[in-house]
Design a protein around this nucleic acid. Structure first.
Lengths: 345, 345
DNA sequence: TCATTTTTGAGGTACGCACATCATTTTGGC
DNA sequence: GCCAAAATGATGTGCGTACCTCAAAAATGA
């Protein structure tokens, strides 16, 4: 005897197949007493619905859209690659994935794209986007239309997002703080914090976490205010030079977002490369090679492959109205050193 | 138009459904020319076989066995829990999982169990076991019977194992080494290395990795020889006391395997708790609470949930004669500090 | 060219489930 | 106890694929 099927339940519960079907799919027109009897039989037999067969019968081939900003960042590119790879695999599980980019500078366009998708009959959307009123309204419209929304990498609370796939940015900042403090090894120099921009929710939370740990556990270390580079290498060079003119030696640098390549360049010019504890975020070809060279001491990252697969799994579960396996979807905050660099991205 | 089906291929290739079926399932009696035509149609339409429907039609419900030692270790228990949870989910994907324990001290019994399983018609086996001749022979017999074998946590090369699910132990030791060296922060005290036993492949490789890094990057630090406790708390107490009597202060302890609880106890007695850099392996309730209390500085771990799910996925893929998605199955070596402890195991 | 073998076609059944329709039974209100 | 409403049963079809049988066609050898 193999696993029990709907037929077994019907026999066991003393009802017809039609009734079992009504109970299983929460269709109306069944007395509470009958529902209980069927569920009791399900429990007794240990029945587990064959989701593959169910989806096959439904003939439903989920279509979802994934939206990323068109930023020229290696992290975004890495994430897109991971999403594309996961999407290719999802095809064999009856899921069609549209991978789209939106202009990072034009969030109205993003909102328009979301509206189009909603009209085009899509069963789920996942995106990485800043939380602005325009975006929020667009996402709320999706929510109202019963289209599940998944936030990737950067959370979107108060937008009706059904799920967040990404790591806790505050914890990421705290972790960066501990590593910085411990890698300084008792020394109490100044530490510089550099960011492209402090508009993004992630950067702000990371900074908060970093400060909390430094203040509490390494009170001797002076942490400077956040230097914003706006993605311009010259600005970066200038702010670093300026900061170095201030009193006290700089012993550590915390890079909140991207910009590793420019930083390495500036540090080379200033002959500081490898002489300063440097901690950054996200695994990209740049950060990997910087770790290998010893220019970067640690990277706090999230597994983009996991982000991609988790995103698709969550969207599939939402489309099936299935519960989400929280423990599988919880992303771990990863600490990457030269010694535990993954062999391949 | 949804995704292409076998019918579409038949039409596109100008052959019948039966012929497409023969090609897809590598059945004999088709001319090479016809095979090429069908495959060309498959490529042109981008056909991807619906594995769910295929398995449904096959009526095949994969049955696999998972074997763990009956060791009273929290890590083994944690792993078993993760496997049980993954198994419960796998049920809805037509997979039946038998979760078994074998006496750790009696590997002949393990070999006998494996032989029984082979005779009982099972489609795959995963196990965590030491690599002894008895085990090797038993696994080779499985391999000869075309039953795929997956090694969990501890690798089993030269046993015909189809796959290894676990982290690179040498890299784990190297990582522990860097953390130890850096957390010592320039100080050069003695470092103690403690293990339950050095018979297990993992412990040996970890030690090798640890030594390699300490020697190369932190040459001032003296690393003692491995102290074996054989799982006895008293022995642990004794070896630590003895080691402390030697000259030079002990600044770090590297715990290769389990035994965290006993170590904390001994360190408490000696008033060394929290005053020595301590690094261990694997996330268990004990190590988690030790991290939270600050008694443990870092843990090198593998995600047991990932181990469990990966094991089942690999077994499923092997049973379906499907290729394995290497990037998804590659386990990351995780560094856990108090700051990035997962909220739940 | 004929006989033989090989290749191909046509069609059916099954897997476990969803969903639909219509007939039949049971229930509750009065 | 009658009737309408609600609940349940019976039955069929289809999802995409595997696997089987038998007939028909094509290729091959002599």
């Amino acid at each position: 005897m193999g696993r029990p099927t709907v037929t077994d339940i019907a026999r066991e519960a003393g009802v017809s197949l039609a009734t079992v079907d009504r109970v299983l799919n929460a269709r109306p027109g069944v007395r509470a007493k009958t529902i209980a009897a069927v569920q009791e039989a399900i429990a007794r037999l240990g029945y587990v619905r064959d989701m593959a067969a169910a989806n096959l019968a439904r003939g439903r081939s989920t279509r979802v859209a994934l939206l990323l900003p068109d930023t020229e960042s290696q992290f975004i590119q890495t994430l897109e690659d991971a999403l594309a790879q996961a999407a290719a695999l999802a095809t064999s599980a009856r899921m069609q994935v549209d991978l789209l980019r939106y202009p990072a500078a034009d969030l109205h366009r993003l909102a328009a794209m979301l509206a189009e998708l909603a009209a085009g009959g899509i069963s789920g959307v996942a995106l990485m986007a800043p939380e602005t009123p325009v975006v929020r309204d667009a996402l709320r419209a999706l929510h109202a239309a019963d289209i599940p929304v998944v936030a990737m990498v950067s959370d979107l609370p108060n937008c009706g997002a059904a799920h967040y796939v990404g790591i806790d940015s505050h914890a990421a900042g705290r972790t960066a703080g501990v590593l910085m403090g411990r890698f300084l090894g008792g020394r109490t120099p100044r530490v510089m914090v550099i960011a492209q921009s402090m508009l993004l929710r992630d950067s702000i939370e990371r900074r908060r976490g970093f400060d909390a740990v430094m203040l509490a556990d390494f009170p001797g270390v002076t942490v400077g205010q956040t230097l914003e580079t706006h993605g311009v290498a010259d600005t970066l060079r200038q702010v670093i030079r300026e900061a170095l003119r201030s009193d006290g030696p700089v012993g550590g640098i915390y890079l909140l977002g991207s910009g590793h390549r420019a930083l390495v360049q500036v540090l080379t010019e200033l002959n500081l490369l490898g002489r300063v504890v440097t901690i950054g975020h996200e695994l990209t070809p740049h950060t990997i090679s910087a770790l290998q060279s010893g220019w970067l001491d640690a990277v706090i990252a999230q597994n983009v492959g996991h982000v991609a697969r988790s995103t698709l799994r969550v969207l599939q579960a939402k489309a099936d109205h299935q519960p989400i396996n929280e423990s599988q979807e919880r992303l771990r905050l990863e600490i990457i050193l030269r010694e535990n660099l993954p062999q391949a991205l």
